[in-house]
Write a protein that binds this DNA or RNA. Structure first.
Lengths: 261, 261
DNA sequence: CGATGACTTGACTGCTGTCAACGTGCGTGG
DNA sequence: CCACGCACGTTGACAGCAGTCAAGTCATCG
């Protein structure tokens, strides 16, 4: 129930919108928290100016101070091997936490880079840890989010370990589609913020293979693709191709009254 | 269930060894905890009779009640796709926690099966959560362990995503070797508790490929292999093959005075 | 001692990576 | 407004790594 009473201070006000009013609070860290608890969480969170495309949020080896929640836009995280080539480890959409892998030893093992203009919530980890001691629902949600991350990584292992190129790309698109739906966006039509090269790298494929598969999927009537824009025409059949169980309505979507157009 | 009436209290006593006396407490959940805190952690932990080879600790979909720490022996965790084939997600050695991916929704997404006779510590999660609210060092260590798990999964993504068969097996052996060393065992000589098929499945390779690579590595003088027994003859060169930075002494090993031979 | 499962080895095939050329859209600057 | 350059994406030709199929060997256990 978003209590929108913004007169006009729009952009500045939007940047400062609290967890309480954030449209993402049903899928972000605040899940399951009461109103007063939410205010306390909100009080430790900082909201900075958005990142521009290609800006780094942090680099490999940076000391770990904060977790970040994506508010809008998207990020990729990646590692670089000694010979300089990168391995894309994940793409992060609004409502997702970034930096959880840095808790282990206080340094970021991956770099995070904005794929487009991206705004974030900055959550000082020490404060979060202290606060979660007092708020069981926050503690629980933090553990749940980390557990989900582990699970997602396990899914990726299946994808990389025993799926064909075709299945990998299909899985990737279905997964993206589901994540968009969950956030209240269209599940059948969206824009890829990452390049073919990033997708290929993430899926363990050559970028040429990704390109060829997009063409093939299009020829087979599964989807329409135009540059970054993707339109899924036959989600069900794409699911078959991904050889994974893809429910089309596994979770209720978030209603976003202000996303009229 | 066979209730073997062993007279000697020995084995029973051994099963009940507390965290305080456990040789694994420097790499397990107790890391960084004081003596009195350790006693409180110990009080919520249950130690059951060991699992026999091929016994399941839990199966896919089982309700999540407890985390488990391996005390001795080893486990594999795996998922099964709808067509029944399995994907091995990980191997778990003494001191490692199993079940972290079940916190997210209260059900185990993977099954866990003993690769050999394996004893475990059972940690009721509700109790752990409550206790960690009171013991900051426990809370912190739990988060660290989960973060490490995420990091390990990221490593696996690199392995599966952009390494050749040769590099994957080399990485796997180096990783195992390091984990054994950390636990006070020999880093150059150990027994594989898992089959070639499990290794191949885990690494995204056919078991025949694994077999061929063992033969090749042996012919090249990198190691000696006899059934399950592995002896690393040239760890440094194996590291080169794995195309990863593998320090040979990254972390101090645990001294285990009773492992004299 | 035979049965069974685990492992090894060989022959062949095919998926997907690599190399290379070409097309397309966008931003910059004249 | 157009020309240009550049990054990104597409398409084709070819080759090689690793999967599949199949046969054979070895170890363990009843």
């Amino acid at each position: 129930m978003p209590t929108r009473k913004l007169e006009k201070v729009v952009s500045l006000k939007e940047i400062k919108v609290a967890c309480q009013a954030c449209s993402l609070n049903e899928i972000c860290l605040p899940v399951g928290m009461g109103e007063t608890d939410l205010d306390r969480l909100d009080s430790i969170i900082d909201r900075k100016r958005p990142l521009a495309r290609n800006d780094h949020l942090f680099r490999i080896g940076d000391p770990f101070q904060c977790l970040y929640a994506v508010r809008s836009g998207s990020l990729k995280t990646y590692a670089t091997s000694e010979d300089g080539q990168e391995q894309v480890m994940g793409f992060h959409l609004p409502g997702e936490l970034v930096g959880l892998d840095a808790i282990a030893d206080g340094r970021h093992p991956l770099a995070a880079k904005a794929l487009e203009t991206t705004s974030l919530c900055e959550i000082p980890f020490a404060d979060l840890e202290a606060l979660s001691r007092q708020l069981p629902s926050l503690q629980h949600q933090l553990l749940r989010v980390m557990s989900q991350e582990i699970r997602a990584d396990e899914q990726n292992m299946v994808t990389l370990g025993q799926k064909s190129a075709e299945e990998r790309l299909a899985s990737f698109l279905i997964s993206l589609s589901s994540r968009f739906r969950r956030r209240g966006f269209s599940e059948n039509q969206f824009n890829l913020s990452m390049s073919r090269s990033d997708i290929g790298n993430y899926l363990g494929l050559a970028l040429e293979t990704v390109s060829r598969l997009f063409t093939r999927f299009q020829n087979e009537g599964l989807l329409r693709v135009d540059r970054k824009h993707i339109e899924l025409l036959d989600r069900a059949r794409l699911c078959m191709f991904s050889s994974a169980k893809c429910s089309s309505s596994e979770e209720p979507r978030i209603l976003r009254p202000n996303a009229s157009s």
